[in-house]
């Protein structure tokens, strides 16, 4: 579904991704861990199409298409969803309004008719129950004045409404209280299916207790240095990242 080969990307002259290889198949859940500043968010941003990154080498294909050639909105309509590490506030833009526009853009691509306001409200209220979010969030500005945890919940609400084929979750667990973590994990798990894949960036093993990954990767200094199963996350929690770097440079 997602095939990344030798991906190099930089901002200005600063090289950040230095040859990332990653193969994600339908139904899989991948966790990406790694030290601060290693390029995890950069990888997610490049895949979602944020401007300002120059891809100098390598490729990324999604469902057989050259992902990097598509406009960000085109990627989204084809089922790529990025849950942001730092969701931006958009004052004055109604949260429900944006989500309805997003859903109808995605539905159009899927050959489905627009949902009208009533159908949309019924759907979103249902999803908000799942996310245990108060309906007052519908009428507020997008992320406007939301607490850190509320922003993350709102990202997963959007995800559960848009039902992406490939979900990229950038530290969705950071800043969540214990109950919210469980709620968010429920939201993510309810999306799991044989046709969908999830790539989640996290610093914490704890998330992986709730959302079990098939693979755990260590991204360090712009490269994936090690790939393992869930037990790798446990080992990282105990030992940190230095041994991974040392073993990689010795090899």
């Amino acid at each position: 579904m997602l095939s990344i080969r030798d991906l190099h990307a930089q901002i200005g002259v600063r090289k950040i991704l230095k040859g990332v290889n990653l193969e994600v198949k339908p139904g899989e859940v991948h966790a990406i861990m790694g030290p601060n500043g290693s390029g995890k968010s950069t990888l997610a941003s490049v895949l979602a199409g944020r401007a300002g990154y120059e891809v100098t080498k390598g490729t990324a294909h999604y469902l057989g298409d050259d992902l990097l050639a598509l406009e960000p909105e085109e990627r989204a309509r084809r089922g790529v969803f990025l849950a942001f590490q730092y969701p931006v506030e958009i004052p004055g833009v109604n949260n429900a309004y944006l989500l309805k526009a997003a859903l109808n853009a995605v539905r159009k691509q899927r050959g489905l008719p627009d949902l009208d306001a009533f159908e949309f409200l019924a759907l979103i209220k249902d999803k908000m129950k799942l996310m245990q979010m108060d309906e007052s969030f519908l009428s507020r500005g997008v992320n406007e004045g939301f607490s850190g945890g509320e922003k993350k919940r709102n990202e997963i609400l959007q995800m559960s409404v848009l039902e992406p084929t490939l979900a990229l979750l950038d530290e969705t667990d950071s800043g969540l209280d214990i109950d919210a973590l469980r709620v968010v994990a429920t939201g993510v798990n309810s999306l799991r299916s044989p046709e969908r894949a999830i790539v989640m960036v996290t610093h914490y093993q704890r998330l992986l207790d709730y959302i079990e990954p098939d693979f755990v990767h260590v991204l360090s200094d712009g490269r994936i240095l090690r790939t393992g199963d869930k037990s790798l996350a446990l080992e990282l929690e105990k030992r940190g990242y230095d041994w991974v770097k040392q073993e990689a440079s010795a090899a």
């Binding site: 199409g49 909105e73 958009i90 004055g92 526009a101």
Partner: peptide, 22 residues
Amino acid sequence: FYCRSRGVSEEDAVNMIVNGFC
């Protein structure tokens, strides 16, 4: 970028944000 990453076209996103700001 946030709006576009949700599938909204650049034009619609600009209108939305400007409208909201105003």
